[in-house]
Amino acid sequence: MIKSEVAKLPTRYGNFDIKAYKDGSQEHLAIMSKNFSDINTPIVRIHSECLTGDTMGSLKCDCNNQLNLALELISKEGGLVVYHRQEGRNIGLVNKVNAYKLQDEGFNTIDANLKLGFKEDERDYGAVGFILKDLNIKEIKLITNNPTKIKFIEDCGIKIAERIPAITEINKFNKNYLQTKKDFMGHIL
């Protein structure tokens, strides 16, 4: 894994420090509050890349809202967002758009991935584990609804002092998506 130096990132949420990590062809980002190194139990969000949501504000998902929630929280209370660059649950942007087309035809998010020949979730969190270890994380307050991320953190030997729900606005475009995550992926919503 290749690491960058730490750089400053002023944002509309406040001033952060950032550090990039390269794992094969994927590059991930650690976005840290200015007081990050002084906090024993930081707030942490593992945020999986969603170009359509994070950049374009897609209403089909809750990704942009969850990222904004996390950045606001860590700006105020201190912590870290690991921006995990595995687009579309790691099926890539082209396949994600193809999955969107299948969702337009009535498939849910899981069935669309399966129809395209993928597992319901292709993500690998190995790079996240490396980043957390590199940043000397031992105990966190985890922002997530995803039981897979909770298990991953526990398997890394990191104590979860608190789970902070990432509950955001439901709309007519993401209602079925969120229901599928709850019913079939065990998300805590």
Rank of each mutant, 00 (worst) to 15 (best):
K3S: 13
E5S: 15
K8T: 13
K8F: 13
T11Q: 04
T11V: 06
Y13T: 04
K19H: 02
A20I: 09
K22G: 02
K22S: 09
D23K: 02
S25R: 13
S25F: 12
Q26R: 13
Q26H: 09
A30T: 01
M32V: 00
N35E: 12
I39F: 03
N40F: 00
T41F: 03
P42I: 00
I43C: 01
V44C: 08
H47P: 00
S48P: 03
E49R: 10
C50K: 05
C50A: 11
L51C: 02
K60G: 06
D62A: 11
C63F: 05
C63K: 02
Q66S: 10
L67Q: 12
A70L: 06
G78M: 09
G79A: 14
Q86C: 06
Q86W: 04
E87N: 12
G88L: 05
R89T: 05
I91D: 00
G92T: 06
V94P: 07
N95I: 07
V97A: 09
K101V: 13
Q103A: 10
G106N: 07
G106S: 04
G106V: 12
F107S: 10
F107E: 11
T109E: 13
D111C: 08
D111A: 09
G117V: 09
D121L: 09
E122V: 09
R123H: 04
Y125F: 15
V128K: 01
V128P: 00
F130P: 01
L132Q: 08
I137L: 06
K138T: 12
K138L: 12
E139S: 14
I140C: 04
T144I: 07
N145A: 09
P147H: 01
I150R: 04
F152C: 03
E154K: 15
E154N: 15
E162G: 05
E162Q: 15
P165F: 11
E169P: 10
N171H: 04
N171D: 11
K172N: 12
N176P: 00
F184R: 15
F184E: 14
H187F: 09
